[in-house]
Design a binder for these strands. Sequence first.
DNA 1: CCCTGATTCGC
DNA 2: GCGAATCAGG
Length: 186
Amino acid sequence: MSWTDERVEALKKLWAEGLSASQIAAQLGGVSRNAVIGKVHRLKLSGRGRTNAAPARQKKAAAPVTTTATAPAQAPAVRSKPRPAAPAAPVRPMVATTVGATALKVQYDEEPAVYQQYQALPDNVVPIARNLKLIELTERTCKWPNGDPLSEDFSFCGADSTENSPYCTFHSRLAYQPAAERRRLR
DNA sequence: CCCTGATTCGC
DNA sequence: GCGAATCAGG
């Protein structure tokens, strides 16, 4: 994936809007947040108008170069992988489809046995929805889907998920209710 | 732990 | 020019 004019313009726009590098990377697709930050610096966009007096960094030792067969020690949870470009109509990346598929599967396959523990939760628990893109989800974000999965603005709740659930407290209540009750509560 | 941007340097 | 690895910090 290269920095085409379109992608650079999108980067400039999103950076100006204040999105973080990782958010921009997720939005553009095919690049890491490091790539975004690197590009931002080469474009001299850094600072974003603010006076972030960047403290001087210490120089680092050269990165050890492993010859072969060593995968990155720790791939960030939201490292995006290359995918076909589709500037006008972004294609949902493959990398996180299992996350989405799992979320949907859990939502629709959950057995009634787990209903009880969530029915007691208070009605006024409302998630701090972050409306994340599929590839922005982590193991600890609520995977409750918002909108039509086939539409462009499809997103996930993204609030902090509860300990033993793919959902936040609020959406756990919905997910583990019978369908009719879910509709009533929603 | 999660995340942020900044920097270096091999490619 | 690019971006992974790393650093420094919230």
